[in-house]
Design a binder for these strands. Sequence first.
DNA 1: GAATTTGTACTGACTGGTCAGTTCAAAAAT
DNA 2: ATTTTTGAACTGACCAGTCAGTACAAATTC
Lengths: 209, 209
Amino acid sequence: MQTPGPARRVGGRREATRRKLFEAAVTLVSEQGYGATTVDEIAERAGVAKGTVYYNFGGKDELYAALLEWGVTRLADTLRQAVPGPEVEPRQALTEVLRAGVVFIGAHEALARLLMAETWRTNRSWYTTVRQIRTQAIGVITEQLDAMVERGLTRPDLDTSLAGSALFGMVVTVALDWRTLQPERPVEEIHTTLAHVADGLIGSPTPTR
Amino acid sequence: MQTPGPARRVGGRREATRRKLFEAAVTLVSEQGYGATTVDEIAERAGVAKGTVYYNFGGKDELYAALLEWGVTRLADTLRQAVPGPEVEPRQALTEVLRAGVVFIGAHEALARLLMAETWRTNRSWYTTVRQIRTQAIGVITEQLDAMVERGLTRPDLDTSLAGSALFGMVVTVALDWRTLQPERPVEEIHTTLAHVADGLIGSPTPTR
DNA sequence: GAATTTGTACTGACTGGTCAGTTCAAAAAT
DNA sequence: ATTTTTGAACTGACCAGTCAGTACAAATTC
């Protein structure tokens, strides 16, 4: 037990197996729910023996927790990478981030469904993890809003944190409604409508009423 | 003696039992999820024998489907009732509807959590029902947006249906984040931020031509 | 007006199937 | 040589659904 060395190669066999399991689980759980999805199903869909699940993760719960963490981290990373440099004006930057959100959900529909379903169950063991990383994702949006407030591009009394959460919820809801009800529509149309709503927010630095 | 007493036909024993079961189920399921909640638990919390569940509903699935329908219908009704008469300008009317949404969620937190978590599971038997009534709720918002477009209060090319879905998602997300993370804040603050975002949308009748 | 029937609502012990988790020897990959 | 995966059999807890029986009130009969 002196040599740990499992993480030698990036993309080793073990890593590949884990990813296969994640991908299998994410689809099945998003369709059926966690409780209704059996370990046997997941293993079969991943083309892997049941024992492998227990070798790689401790059990069903651990697999699921790891999956959630993997998923939400990917979302947060994607959003972070979508933030353009400081040369781009904040209004445009926010639009880019929202677009990245829509695109991500379009490409990882099952994962998005699952995250939405899991965010609101406050007393599952993995709840804290999901919540934390979700906060990171929202944080990316909030930062853009803060930058806007700073430059007087929107009303100065805006609760950017709450507004960030609002925009996040908006993106996810719209994107999933799109995938569910009219998947044939091009992403661009979805994003345009979203931008209209967001633009509205930005376009009113008037402390009316 | 035309039944003035407590034993009036309508609102009889059966109805009371059903409501007790709904109330028990909504809490349990919102906390643990559908799969993790057992019929025994629900019956116990409702102070009723297990058999009663099967007598009143066909089984677990049917109880749950009925619960969802009951819940979403109440939400849609509440929103509909919040629409003021035609003498109120559409901008104000929309604000009222959004406020009603926030208040409803504040008062029926468990139900809201459950609706959010369960709406995205496309191949459960109850999916279609939930979707339909959810569409009704969103429809109330969309109608206000339509009225605004009609009167030139917002950009004429707005996809009101999609924007309605966006606002709906926004309301639910913000309201639940509020209940979860800072429940001590007064409703008014939440609603104000929400109104800012929505006002932004309305306040930009951008002439795109 | 007492006895009997009918219908509705509910009860809770019981059952049969399901599934997470275990085990382990052997094979394959690194 | 070590790590990782396989495959299949096994166990035991758990739980959805069942069903014979209770309770009781209203209607019906005598």
